[in-house]
């Protein structure tokens, strides 16, 4: 039994272009369509899929319970307006029938009419005037996109993660990391420092020009269809890593999910901030195995992954079973 909607399989961004996985500065221009054996992904910077309402409800519930998932340092006000305008524009590009951003003439400051037909929103606002919005700009727009958002301020040759809404973190704490530099945030990740991966990424991001948009992917395994695997809630989901070793094969294939993060990197024009969008996609091994090239490739990559990387990803205790499961479940 699986509950995965067909469009979630067809649109799944399978993250393994090669037979082995290592960290790399794997950035490419955004909006390029990637064709996969199951369908395609990548045409939009913000992606709206069958989970739109459910994920937005989940984000609202998480924020209600733990407000630290939303943080804006005081100097990030301009970046938040910038991010809102950019995300509205991207939604309108992705689904012109569902979303619409229209400039409104007149006035000293730019004004816009925003329509989100999926949420029944039709609202006109003045850029920079908080009184014309129903909520703070970053809070409002992140209640309308499935992506997590981190805004990086650039100063003194360094990017700082000074604002964001992150409710679907994969094993990190945005509330703790807010205010840190890009390099500091990634401090605990093994291998990326001696190999220069992260400093190259940092240099690349610093050089992004206004409006330029790139993307990369990252991945891990997650037990259950659980978007919020934040460090905050580790006591809730940590035990699953032991639990999953004890379940039978059928349950294992349904519980263990390949989790792909599609990350978009956008230089916001007005503030000069870099917007990091993190969209998390989850696909159970049982569905992954129905797509033969995905099954074989994922088995190879997960089996070969060096131990320190598996350990950092938190999958060391069950990844060999996951690889074996995939090898043993060819689709007929």
């Amino acid at each position: 039994m699986t509950s995965t909607a067909p469009d979630l399989v067809a649109g799944f961004p399978f993250p393994f272009p090669n037979a082995t996985y290592r960290y790399s500065t794997n950035v490419e221009p955004a909006r390029g369509v990637v064709t996969t054996p199951a369908g395609q992904w990548g045409d939009a910077v913000v992606d709206v899929d069958a989970e739109y309402h459910r994920e937005l409800d989940e984000r609202a519930a998480i924020l209600e319970q733990d407000p630290s998932r939303y943080a804006v340092l005081p100097h990030m006000d301009v970046a938040c307006w910038d991010a809102m305008l950019c995300l509205m524009r991207e939604l309108a590009l992705a689904r012109p029938g569902s979303f619409d951003l229209e400039p409104v003439a007149g006035g000293a400051r730019p004004s816009y009419r925003w329509r989100n037909r999926l949420l029944d929103i039709d609202h006109t606002f003045v850029l920079g005037d908080p009184a014309t919005l129903p909520a703070e700009p970053l809070a409002w727009i992140t209640s309308q996109v499935q992506e997590d958002v981190v805004l990086l301020d650039q100063r003194d040759g360094t990017l700082f993660g000074d604002a964001g809404v992150v409710t679907f973190a994969a094993d990190w704490s945005f509330g703790f990391d807010v205010g840190m530099s890009f390099l500091e945030i990634h401090g605990p990740v093994p291998r990326i420092h001696p190999e220069g991966v992260i400093t190259r990424a940092h240099e690349f991001l610093k050089g992004l020009q206004p409006g330029e948009t790139y993307r990369r992917t990252n991945w891990t395994l997650t037990i259950g269809r659980r978007l919020d695997v934040s460090t905050e809630r580790y006591p809730e989901w940590g035990p699953d890593r032991a639990m999953v070793r004890t379940v039978d094969d059928d349950a294992f294939g349904r519980l263990v999910h390949l989790r792909t993060e599609v990350q978009h990197l956008v230089r916001l024009p007005e503030s000069g901030a870099v917007m990091f969008l993190i969209r998390s996609y989850l696909l159970p091994l049982a569905d992954l195995a129905r797509v033969e090239p995905w099954r074989a490739r994922a088995a190879d990559v997960i089996a070969e992954l060096p131990e320190d990387m598996a350990d950092y990803k938190g999958i060391a205790t069950y990844r060999h079973r996951a690889a074996a499961w995939l090898r043993d479940h060819p689709h007929h």
């Binding site: 704490s173 205010g179 840190m180 530099s181 460090t231 580790y234 035990p239």
Partner: peptide, 20 residues
């Protein structure tokens, strides 16, 4: 954390706990 000076602490034995 730059903003608090605190070290991050998280549950050391979450994966050894009984599960629901």
């Amino acid at each position: 954390s730059r903003r608090t000076g605190h070290h991050l602490g998280f549950m050391v034995d979450a994966e050894d706990q009984p599960w629901e």
